[in-house]
């Protein structure tokens, strides 16, 4: 089983360190881990550092992967608008074919079909990227990220442009995908109720530093919400026994 641990991780951005000394417990394949924090906390920077796109001190310990770290780990950036004259289908094919030859096999195309159908975007397959809405672009991005069957997947706010139905569907889908393929998924989220409901673990980042990391129900507490998010909130159980955050007011 693939495992991931961050040890004293920092990331340089310009001249200074944007993320500093982030150490986490060992995360295991098959589970979703939420990375949460206020705006500009350093979540995207941390993801880019883990993906190897930024340099910095510390260590990313990846163990038990079947492939080289370069192939095992995949990063899905935040919404990126592209005006390329490419269809959705071609853009997903691009993710599959990087580093490979020109010939496209039936197997590769069948896998693209499968992913597009699973994400309910098969009807967009031959639309140009420039014609898509923000939410549709995000679903295409998810397809590009999972089509290469990564063992570790870093998803930077994959649900920020999705409607409520799609948010729940995508997160449930990612949960199922992680369980079935044994994928380790780190997912940056702003909706903390989603973190509580779908993610086994949560990592809290603020001002480029780690605040806490561990099981979601232990990490997401009224005290953390007051200190980091500056809101007075309660965490209560609903009639089904699920934990929910109820925000009362912004903290004084």
């Amino acid at each position: 089983m693939v495992t991931l641990q961050l040890k004293g991780l920092g990331a340089r951005y310009g001249s200074g360190l944007a993320v500093e000394d982030v150490s986490t417990p060992v995360f295991k394949g098959g589970e979703l881990t939420a990375v949460i924090g206020p705006n500009a906390a350093g979540k995207s920077t941390l993801f880019k550092r883990v993906a190897g796109l930024l340099k910095g001190p510390g260590e990313v310990v990846l163990e038990g992967a079947r492939n080289e770290p370069r192939d095992a780990l995949r990063y899905m950036p935040q919404d990126t608008h592209a005006n390329a004259v490419l269809t959705v289908y071609e853009s997903v094919l691009l993710a599959v074919k990087q580093g490979h030859g020109w010939r496209v096999s039936d197997r590769e195309l069948a896998e693209i079909d499968q992913i597009l159908e699973a994400l309910q975007i098969a009807d967009l397959a031959f639309r140009n990227l420039g014609e898509l809405s923000g939410g549709q672009r995000q679903l295409v991005s998810i397809a590009q990220a999972i089509v290469r069957k990564p063992e570790v997947l870093l998803m930077d706010e994959p649900t920020s442009a999705l409607d409520l139905y799609r948010q729940v569907e995508v997160l449930a889908f990612m949960q199922e995908l992680a369980r079935r393929r044994g994928t380790l998924v780190l997912i940056a989220l702003h909706d903390l109720n989603h973190a509580l409901r779908f993610c086994h673990n949560t990592v809290v980042i603020s001002s480029g530093r780690l605040v806490s990391a561990g099981p979601s129900r232990q990490v997401i507490t009224p005290e953390m919400l007051r200190e980091i998010y500056r809101v007075d909130a309660r965490i209560e159980q609903c009639s089904r026994g699920e934990s929910h955050i109820i925000i009362d007011r912004s903290a004084a």
Binding site: Y89, E90, L93, V104, D106, L109, A110, I112, D113, Q114, L116, E117, A122, A125, F126
Partner: peptide, 8 residues
């Protein structure tokens, strides 16, 4: 799926 055929 039809995607494969349409792409070809």
């Amino acid at each position: 799926g039809t995607g494969r055929g349409l792409y070809r």
